[in-house]
Amino acid sequence: MPSDKDWFDRFVIGLPERRLFKFLAARILVPFWAWWTPVKPLPGGPHPSAQPGDNLQCMMNLIMPLKDKSAVGRAKAAGAIAANKDQIYAGLNNVGTVHFARFVIVGDNICMFSVYDGDFTNYIRDFIATIGSVFNAVVELVEGGEDVIPCEHNAEAFIEWVHARDLYQVPDTATGVLRDQEALKGDKAASGDDDLDLLPRRLTLQLHANPNVSLGSGYRAYPGYSAAQIRKQLGIGW
C-alpha cells in the first residue's frame, strides 16, 4: 500500500511539470545560476574543420532581427526576397558550392538557412561579391544592417556581421556542449574533476546565453559529397 512518503515522492517527481515550478525555474533559478556561474555564449557557425570531409555540406543558420517588428515589416522582407529571387538564385548558382539555401520568416526575424561546401568566409565573400547589391535590399530591413551597406563594398565587415548572427551549432553528442565550453576557456585536458550531473545546468545556461541554436549537425542523405560531385555524378553540369 503506498505510504505518505511515496505520495510525496511522486509529487516531487511531477514538480517540473507544474506551472509554479516552471515559473520559478524560468524567472528565478535560471537567472540566479546564470549570475552565479556565468556562461559565455558559444560562437556561431560550423566547428573548425580538421579533415577534408568537415568542409562539406556546412550549415549556415542566419537569424536577422527585422527593424520593423510588425506585419508590415515582415511583408517588406517577404517582398524584398520575392522581388530579388532571380538575382539571388543566379548569385547562388555562380557561387557554385551551395547545396540548398532558403529564406524563412520566424517571429520578427528574416532567416537565411543554407548548406554549402568549403570555408565560411569564402562562401560569404563569394556570395556577397555576386549578389551583394541585391542583398542590400534585405539587409537594410534588418537591425544593424546600415553598418554594412553597401555589402559589396564592405565584404570583411559583412562577413563579421553574418558570423555574429549565425547560430551556435550544438554538437551531435550529449556531452559535446561541455567540450565546446571547455575549448572556449582554453581547457583541452583529457581528464578533469568534473561533475557530470551538471550537464543539464550547463546546457540550460548556454541556451539562456544563446537562445537560438542549431541542434546537431543535421541529417544528410548523402554525407561526404560536395555539390560539384553530386552534379557531376548526376550529369547535370556546371
Partner: peptide, 14 residues
C-alpha cells in the same frame, strides 16, 4: 524527495 528538490533547485535532473 528532499534531495530531488535540491537537485531541481541546482538545475540538475534528479
Amino acid at each position: 524527495p528532499w534531495q530531488k528538490i535540491l537537485d531541481m533547485l541546482q538545475l540538475k535532473i534528479p
